[in-house]
Nucleic acid binder design. Sequence first.
DNA 1: TAGCTGGCTTGCGCTGCCCTAAGTCAGTCC
DNA 2: GGACTGACTTAGGGCAGCGCAAGCCAGCTA
Lengths: 166, 166
Amino acid sequence: MTEAKEAAPAMPRLTGALEPRASWPATGCSLARAIDVVSTRSAFLLLREAFYGTSRFDDFATRAGISEPVAAARLRELVEAGLLTRAEYREPGQRARLAYRLTEKGADLFPALAALMEWGDRWLAEDGGPIGLRHRDCGEPVAVELRCAAGHRTSPGELDLVHRRR
Amino acid sequence: MTEAKEAAPAMPRLTGALEPRASWPATGCSLARAIDVVSTRSAFLLLREAFYGTSRFDDFATRAGISEPVAAARLRELVEAGLLTRAEYREPGQRARLAYRLTEKGADLFPALAALMEWGDRWLAEDGGPIGLRHRDCGEPVAVELRCAAGHRTSPGELDLVHRRR
DNA sequence: TAGCTGGCTTGCGCTGCCCTAAGTCAGTCC
DNA sequence: GGACTGACTTAGGGCAGCGCAAGCCAGCTA
């Protein structure tokens, strides 16, 4: 809540057929499609728990802090969307249970969740947030970065948006 | 919809006070807080347009493909949350208009949106998605990466989750 | 002064997300 | 064979997000 003397952050630049913005519709936008898959708060929280290693129905509901009907509905949707799989497993002397596990498609959302969490740590938490990521091999903190294929670390202002051939 | 012979992707590991997961609640989770700020589809789409350089009310509504009442409500919320600012500007001979611009806080969400878009490109688009990011200086494509402070590129399976001192 | 335009607001009704509370059902444990 | 547990489903109701269709107002243009 400091006084905003905003220095208008630099943004990506539209290039080629994308310029001006008014000349094209955003149909087929991959961001919109991604949001259609994980739009709800409950879906995000269930995925968070999946990344924390949760696999059982009741654990998902209580740890994500959502009701069982919502957990059931959302887990079903995430399975249908291919982000989770249900696998039967049986501990000795126990009856068969269902475990929900991330598929490769679901696991590949990790950077997006990590980026959101990092933003929340930076802008919404008083103390930097309760949970951090560390590289196991070297113990250093891990952050989300935008890098080009040549290895340069980039900021949004250094980027061009390009229209891919279709 | 291929047959799932999933090889269970490696996930981050809980360490220290975070292990086992059942021993702590996720109160104060930065991901949950971030989602509370930008939970709705319309908020994401408006932010997308802000990153594309849109600044006027009508343009936001039509380019994001949402109705004006929703655009008005969501823009107001995003301003209140500090992601956008309203600035009056006047072109010569025109009356004053309002421009919505990203604040530093809003602009800092770019990696998260880029990560979601990248995921959508990879898993939901047939052809890799309509829009790509390039590094202006070298022309190389840009991707979201998880890197530790020592510069190592990491995958989720190489990460530890740690509890930050409070 | 009358019209036009940008930037909204208001009033509807629909749908979807979410909650609580209660019920179901299969398999184990005692 | 009765209780228990995990994994759900069903029922009922509230509220939020959304679209459509109007309406409103300030300032500029004619």
